[in-house]
Write a protein that binds this DNA or RNA. Sequence first.
DNA 1: GTGAAAGCGCTAACAC
DNA 2: GTGTTAGCGCTTTCAC
Lengths: 363, 363
Amino acid sequence: MIKATITDVARLAGVSPKTVSRVINREPNVRADTCAEVERAIKVLGYRPNQFARNLASRRSRLIVLIYEDPESHDMASCGYVLRLQSGALRACRAASHELLIHPYSYAEREVVSELDALISQVRPAGIILAAPLSNIPELVRAIEGSGTPLVRLSPGGKQETPCSISTNDHEIFSEMTRYLVSLGHTRIGFIKGHRQHSAVQNRYSGYCEGLRESGIPLDRSLVLQGDNSTPGGKTAAARLLELKHPPTAIFAANDDMAAGVMQEVIIRGIRIPEQLSVAGCDDSALAQQVYPNLTTIRQPLARMAERAVEALVAHTPQKADGSLSEIIAGTIKIRESTGPAPGQKILTNTRPSTKSGGVAGR
Amino acid sequence: MIKATITDVARLAGVSPKTVSRVINREPNVRADTCAEVERAIKVLGYRPNQFARNLASRRSRLIVLIYEDPESHDMASCGYVLRLQSGALRACRAASHELLIHPYSYAEREVVSELDALISQVRPAGIILAAPLSNIPELVRAIEGSGTPLVRLSPGGKQETPCSISTNDHEIFSEMTRYLVSLGHTRIGFIKGHRQHSAVQNRYSGYCEGLRESGIPLDRSLVLQGDNSTPGGKTAAARLLELKHPPTAIFAANDDMAAGVMQEVIIRGIRIPEQLSVAGCDDSALAQQVYPNLTTIRQPLARMAERAVEALVAHTPQKADGSLSEIIAGTIKIRESTGPAPGQKILTNTRPSTKSGGVAGR
DNA sequence: GTGAAAGCGCTAACAC
DNA sequence: GTGTTAGCGCTTTCAC
């Protein structure tokens, strides 16, 4: 397998290298038969353009960099999160003949910015995807934007004014899940917030509050606890909720890991799920279908978000000035076995809430 | 942040571009003070060598490709597996200033080989890592070796004659876990085999057999079931084992996902773990610490294996003729809460087996 | 120890 | 529509 070059192809096809270049880059202004001839020559020689030469000559690469919080720093808890991002990004990369470079960062280490600088100037990526919670760190965003590299942020919290971003409807879907629990007859619904640092925290909690409000149920602050996104944290929080004078009949955790911790604590205490207590989570991690009973949860469109991000980046390549894309992709509620009618409640005919966002789906 | 080139640095340092090149590549034959002068200039200008130009001129890249079975085709079950491989590979890549390209393949699709060809000729990777179970597919190995790209295989089954490979001690560690269970007083130990396609299956099962043999316990074939690496599969298998006339007092599953299924089934039947039944798995996936009780399992040194693979590849770069590396890195037993003395058994003083491979560690 | 010249394989900017 | 001329920024080869 000796490497054929563009000149070899040009010679065989009886055209100039530039014409071959036009064909492989699908540029206009090539006669159909010339094009066919070139393509034949390409096939005959098994020619593959050398990416490095292309990158060097055209000053841009076909590499997309996906940056996310290093799951190692969380003991691999968020592993489904990372894999789904990768999966979507890879799909779009394949479709666009780009390659994906992964860069997990432990944001604890402060060298990230200089690492990023090095990466950008050495690799000149076609684009960078910055996943939450990193998408929320001004320092990083600035470093990337400063270099002129196209950037898409995934689920940046707060006002997503700055550059391109793709988010999910956290607020709405948390509201919807809350209303779903209410529709099952629950009126005392515990809520365990996510880790403070994570930008989605606020939207999720506000969604819960709104769900209650829309259902006409007053917010009881004693039912709301600060969690840390971990399973042990969920366990601890559940213990506190269950020891309340008026314990909740449902517990809604801001992620699945905490929900799993809740379930552990509940089972230890001999409380049955969902007959005596309903549990809901968020993320639809692998865990959700591995715990018993299977967990009702919210599935975020992570893969789709990353996929769209790559698409935007690839399209955007010739520095589109104001590419201030700001998309929202809706999540989905997955009803499984961990939620059911509140104790002492008749089973309702229709347990599914009306949907104005994302929709509700069984598994 | 305008890009400084090697010529800029050369000019500022008052030397030729070639000398700068020598410095950044750590080539010999540069006087210490020249070197210092160049490094100062590099710092002043914030110079970063353009990888594409280097790659083009030197005909080799600083990209390592990690190829593994697409977790999507397994519904993300093996997500910890992938992440730990990535994590190790990334660590070594950072240390060696290389970048990591990830390529999950669903081996169901047969186009993999031509995709691989394209990848190799376009990207000219410095090396490829082929993870199990893909490391066992002759077609892929041939395609890579045929291109002359350095290859390291991870846990290829069978005789690892061909090229470089890095494996773990599946056989020994499964034997050890089995002996550990015996040391707890278990004599009827169920075993659920892994998916047929996975090359490690054979070694794991043979380790179990040897563990029994060394303990003087005859192999009872009715206690050995074929699993499929999935949680539901483990559940089904457990049901069959528990309905046996003489059910086992311990169940050893060839991976954690199946072990989780076992635990589900056991809990449904109201059997207590570990008092009435011990359960052990393999992989130390995130799951192992998320199920209740936490799962006793085997931790494979996946990250370390991938890390070593990258190191070998990077060192190997100038096609070392016979780089037939063949390393074995030992796994570790993680004793958690799901295993205990067999029912009706006194608690032994020392529940830990003698170790001749890998060693035993609590958490 | 250091430098000059000649590409690596492709694309940019123009000419025709 | 197509070809020509120059590089892209670095490393190679070989001279000194």
